[in-house]
């Protein structure tokens, strides 16, 4: 890893978002990674003057993570994307697409989770 990733817990997240927003950090994006043991890594990437800082939050797949879209409106798309692809629910989404931001209604949910890997002929 080229940068340090700080671990945070779910309770610290809303406070962290407020703090970063106050410091004038730009939310670069979120990344979700399936760890394969029923948990997901959520990585929060912040940027200020081209310096990135990263925070890692590990959540169980069936948990409800707090949304930071109330503070950073920009988080809205990516949180909906994670909901689409990993089936992780967020509380307090500014605009909720209900797991169908990308996926049509008839498509399976959470295609990015490891169990759903299929290889077409």
């Amino acid at each position: 890893m080229n940068d340090v990733i700080t671990r945070i817990t779910m309770d610290e997240l809303p406070g962290l978002a407020q703090k970063m927003f106050g410091e004038g950090q730009r939310l670069a994006t979120l990344t979700a990674v399936d760890l394969g043991d029923g948990t997901l890594d959520l990585l929060y990437h912040f940027d200020k003057d081209l310096v990135l800082s990263h925070y890692r939050l590990t959540v169980p797949k069936d948990a409800v993570a707090p949304s930071i879209s109330g503070v950073y409106f920009a988080a809205l798309l990516v949180e909906n994307e994670i909901k689409d692809q990993f089936g992780l629910n967020f509380s307090g989404l500014a605009l909720d697409f209900g797991g169908h931001l990308y996926l049509a209604d008839e498509v399976q949910n959470a295609p990015f989770c490891k169990l759903s890997l299929t290889k077409k002929a």
Partner: peptide
């Protein structure tokens, strides 16, 4: 690869567009 995530520029520019 275990995970590849691509954050593209337009993805980041859509919230500003909505504003």
């Amino acid at each position: 690869l275990d995970r590849l995530r691509i954050r593209t520029p337009t993805f980041a520019n859509i919230p500003p567009l909505l504003a």
